[in-house]
């Protein structure tokens, strides 16, 4: 089974601090990590390989330093990795990003399953996974929390919904976006880390893809940022002190309007 996992390198939010004066992000010293939701995608891809045999290829589109994320993916059990990187991709919104990734995937050998995290922690759009499946014209199941059964023809999966879950049967090749509930990602193994160190990452530019240049990067992106502003920071309010009973009474009085 050929499995492709699409990942993104994002700023590590546990490092993010906010400048109390300007109320902007302090980026110095913020390291880049694999998008937390993609860790579940990598783990599920590796588990599928362990279950069915085959190969896992990790793909990312990003700046040259995104190679680090791919090496980490290899350390976690992926076999091969492709970095799709070019100035021509700069300014891509989700339309152009999913188009570029779809073009890269088409260049790879035939695949059975594509797995993505449900969304990236820096953009939170959840649009790129469905975008890829649409560009490739393959079926998708989003928010997958369990792959119940899979063979080389089809899969039966559970899709998380607001109320519970749906059981969906889908023919391969297809694309899944996965949620946290699907697994507990393993730590990289020593062997994996050694492999990651020496792993060769394929690097593709726009010229390597069979892509329409007008559909790449900013030119291929329908959306554009016109205004940026810092929201007014939520200010800490009133501190209430006193004995437990006093505090409880005062709070109930203050919150009466909210609790009807």
């Amino acid at each position: 089974m050929n499995i492709i996992v699409c990942i993104k390198q994002v700023p590590n939010t546990t490092d993010v601090r906010i400048d109390p004066v300007t109320n902007t992000l302090i980026r110095d010293g913020v390291e880049s990590v694999i998008n937390p939701f993609d860790a579940y995608a990598i783990e599920e891809a590796v588990r599928l390989k362990e279950r069915c045999g085959g190969k896992v290829t990790a793909v990312t589109m990003g700046p040259p330093q995104a190679e680090t994320a791919l090496k980490e993916a290899i350390g976690l059990g992926c076999d091969e990795a492709v970095l799709v990187s070019d100035r021509k991709f700069a300014g891509s919104d989700t339309w152009a990003t999913s188009y570029t990734l779809a073009c890269a995937i088409e260049k790879l050998e035939a695949y059975d399953v594509i797995i993505c995290g449900k969304q990236a922690s820096d953009g939170d759009t959840a649009q790129v996974g469905p975008g890829i499946s649409t560009h490739l014209d393959i079926p998708q199941v989003t928010y997958v929390k369990k792959i119940v059964e899979i063979n080389d023809k089809s899969a039966r999966v559970e899709r998380m919904t607001e109320e519970g879950y749906d059981v969906v049967e889908v023919p391969l090749p297809c694309l899944f976006t996965v949620v946290k509930e699907i697994n507990t990602p393993r730590m990289p193994s020593l062997k994996g880390m050694m492999r990651a160190k020496s792993a060769k990452i394929a690097k593709w530019t726009a010229a390597d893809l069979d892509a329409d240049p007008a559909a790449l990067g900013l030119d291929g992106s329908p959306t554009r940022v016109v205004k940026i502003f810092t929201p007014e920071a939520r200010k800490g309010g009133e501190m209430i002190s006193g004995s437990t009973d006093e505090v409880a009474k005062e709070l109930v009085e203050l919150l009466k309007g909210e609790v009807v």
């Binding site: 940022v225 502003f229 929201p231």
Partner: peptide, 15 residues
């Protein structure tokens, strides 16, 4: 919200 939530961005699709 953009870039982690403490910048707001206004976005358009002009064309």
């Amino acid at each position: 919200p953009a870039f982690g939530g403490n910048i707001m961005a206004t976005i358009i699709a002009p064309n």
